[in-house]
Write a protein that binds this DNA or RNA. Structure first.
Lengths: 176, 176
DNA sequence: CTGTATCCCAGCGGATACTG
DNA sequence: CAGTATCCGCTGGGATACAG
């Protein structure tokens, strides 16, 4: 069937159910950064905002939400607070992305590219990301460790052995 | 400052504000696929589910939410409905990802990799994605059109010329 | 099997006012 | 500048019951 070439290979389509919240890394990731405000704050982190009111204003959210979300993101280890001082001013804290936060870069770029491609108005993409070194535009891609670019239908999904074992156990338990 | 190497280059950190909802492709994308249920349904589309109750059950959401979200995703062009029939059964509709939906693959893989890396429990990642051709694990990366892998701090963000012009106009208008 | 309708709750997020 | 506190509306999403 034609639609088969549009899905991952593997046994996932045959399974009975799925503990979505607990056992899917996408779901877990969304529990941390799945809100609009979290994504906008991380975006501003990439764009170079560090101070509370800059982050809030440029992310387009209220200070109340910004404070709450930043506290969560600091707890989750995506931002850290660093003391800084401007000449003649008292010491304040700034919010800096950690490696954990910076590692979301491909996710944000993917979403941006997708939005650029499918949701732009006549003016075209609002922001262009380019490689500072060579000036070429950025795009997110999926590759394997061997370096091949991998389309969705060239991917296989495998349940990890331990999980599969646990899943079997659970099955027989619920059968018994 | 050390933190400078952790941000994009460009003028975005200097701007006054930002019409986040209207002019950011990340925000626009999130308006379409930013909900938990939308992401889980798309994930199941990748995993090979097509039928309504499979999608709902495996996504871990109620049928009510599944119906509502699928209608929105069909309207937004990420899924399409296709008639199918099993031998001896009446014709039904199945939900198939469109190119628009499949193009979100890098975003989902990015989130999954990030979750695998930072949010896995002791059992390790629940699902492993591999390249069907060579068996190597998948990872999402950001590259430029010239093929260089680009880290976050090697990227530059540029406001598109038209937008910049409009932004200037708006500034002087609000000043006047 | 593929949904729809209704009720309900929790959380996100805006607005506003207030504090160190 | 960097938040906190309060109030309130909207929506996501679960549960349950019903329908073609």
């Amino acid at each position: 069937m034609a639609t088969d070439s549009m899905t991952l290979k593997g046994s996932l389509a045959d399974r009975d159910s799925w503990d979505a919240t607990d056992e899917c890394s996408i779901a877990r990731a969304l529990d941390v950064v799945g809100t609009h405000s979290a994504m906008m704050l991380i975006r501003e982190g990439y764009y170079g905002s560090h101070r509370f009111d800059d982050l809030a204003r440029r992310a387009g959210i209220t200070e109340a939400i910004a404070a709450k979300r930043l506290r969560e993101l600091v707890d989750a280890g995506l931002f850290c607070k660093r003391p800084y001082r401007e000449p003649g001013q008292r010491t304040r804290d700034e919010y800096v992305l950690t490696e954990r936060g910076r590692d979301l870069f491909p996710a944000l770029v993917s979403l941006m590219s997708w939005g650029d491609r499918y949701l732009s108005d006549r003016q075209g993409p609002p922001i262009q990301l380019i490689h500072s070194g060579c000036g070429a535009p950025l795009q997110a891609s999926v590759r394997c460790a061997a370096g091949h670019e991998v389309a969705m239908y060239e991917a296989t999904a495998e349940i990890s052995p331990q999980r599969r074992a646990r899943s079997e156990t659970r099955k027989s338990l619920s059968r018994g």
